[in-house]
Write a protein that binds this DNA or RNA. Structure first.
Lengths: 277, 277
DNA sequence: TTCCATTTGGAATATTCATTCCATCCTGCT
DNA sequence: AGCAGGATGGAATGAATATTCCAAATGGAA
């Protein structure tokens, strides 16, 4: 005998993507009672394990009985644990088989160019991942708002930071943002080009180059906003700057990957270009 | 009643790492009968799915009955399928727990600088992965051997390739390799700097810049080796070059990630520097 | 062709695992 | 304090899955 009251009130439909899932998780978490909250926290921190774990494993990780975890799945809109797991098993890494195998092959002959390539690829990947983990969203937002209001954007980055500065200049140009690259050609400095209303992006990593610090000092003296792209919050350019974007770049040997720095540079440029309309 | 003959003759121990597993798989595969061979082939091509699949799923993928797949697991030295699966479930997830979660968060507010950053990070990662998969090892080795023998190494890369060219010049400098960056400053071209015994690295992506193609043509006319870093094997610079390094770079919007190109550039520079001693 | 060893497929079984259900325990409210 | 509502834990159930086993098929050697 089917009774209407047997049907749960609002059978929320299940999340259809991992992103969806995270969204629902964060909105729901604060409203949940103790045990379910534990589930939410543990799952949020170990989303990756869902695809390869059993109810019992996850439950014990979250320090709850399996039944609590089941309830949790249902509250999220899934029919049950298996239903939730399906989402993650399908989304699961559509392409690391070849990648990992290939990387192992490349590394095979130590000292060969291929082995080097594998190392640089890994350094780049690691840098990008750690940028994702540590990026300071509010610093980034501040930086963009300074740049969006600036008249001319000055860019300086020398030696190993020069490629990044060059790329920034290129992207600003493409987005019709007035920008000036201080490239030190002919040892000319253009400090007097810094005008009221302008802003400066200074890119520098240890060992920090004097020219960059000098220009940043000038800018600060003129009360122009300085956006620092650097390695640590404690870098010598920090006290000169209004927004600090710390980039956790991974070295391989003496050579610094630039992947993360470039990703940040592109973001700055494109976000600024967009904000200026 | 326990009988010695019940114990299988040589209970090969199970592989203890994924690498181990691949090794055993490739050595064993050629010796296996038809059905087991199918298992080996399918598993080799889909190693990544082991962690998240059932016997039935894998078996049907390999077009064999489940029992064949079980036998296959045992031949590899595992107690059974579950035993094999355990290896992959544990090996899995080096560090993407926070990473993926974080990326999902960054992407949260569409249009924000953080969302952009997440996209650029992903584009960079995808580029690096696909470089790992497609890199042509022999082209790389050839390129390095040309560069190792060259007197002076000329480098050209303009517009969006300029950062890469600049970085190459920087690394060569650090490694005391004689190199000249053709930067087109003052619209001066330095084609007469190309001397017998030299080599050229030309970096260009669609839309290919004329200056780069012209310099490559000059070099070819003088029979100097040209190393092309470009987007496709069919790029217009291909016919002018002695080694082609095709870089599968992923775009986000109109903006090209440079991660893979830089990884390749660093490899070229460091391998060359090392080879020159 | 016949025979033997090996391989194969599928049905039968054992095990693990997800899921449900209900008695009990909280917590907040009157 | 006493009550009601939801929350909780664990035992019982049922489904999915791995694993074994054996009869039948296959292929190669004599």
């Amino acid at each position: 005998m089917i009774n209407l009251s047997d049907i749960p009130p609002i059978p929320t439909s299940a999340p259809i993507s991992v992103q969806d899932f995270h969204l629902r998780l964060t909105t729901l978490a604060p409203t949940l009672p103790r045990r379910l909250r534990q589930c939410a926290d543990y799952i949020a921190a170990n989303t990756d394990r869902i695809a390869v774990s059993t109810v019992a494993e996850l439950a014990s990780g979250a320090n709850v009985p399996p039944s609590a975890l089941m309830r949790f799945c249902q509250i999220l809109g899934f029919a049950g644990f298996s239903d939730m797991q399906r989402l993650f098993r399908e989304a699961y890494s559509p392409n690391w088989p070849n990648y990992t195998t290939r990387l192992a092959n490349l590394k095979g002959s130590t000292g060969s160019p291929s082995a080097l390539l594998a190392e640089f690829i890994e350094a780049g990947r690691a840098s990008l991942e750690s940028l994702a983990k540590t990026a300071d969203e509010s610093a980034l937002t501040h930086a963009v708002s300074f740049l969006a209001r600036a008249e001319t954007i000055h860019i300086i980055g020398l030696r190993r930071s020069f490629p990044v500065a060059g790329y920034l200049a290129y992207v600003f140009e493409k987005m019709s943002v007035p920008a000036m690259l201080h490239d030190n050609v002919g040892k000319l400095d253009h400090r007097f080009a810094l005008r009221p209303g302008d802003a400066l992006i200074a890119i520098t990593f240890a060992p920090y180059s004097d020219e960059t610090l000098t220009l940043a000092t000038d800018a600060k003296a003129k009360s122009l906003p300085v956006i620092a792209v650097t390695d640590h919050l404690t870098s010598p350019i920090a006290p000169l700057s209004n927004a600090i974007l710390a980039i956790p770049e991974v070295d391989f040997g003496a050579f610094r990957s630039l992947s993360a720095t470039l990703a940040m540079a592109m973001t700055l440029a494109v976000a600024t270009g967009t904000a200026r309309g």
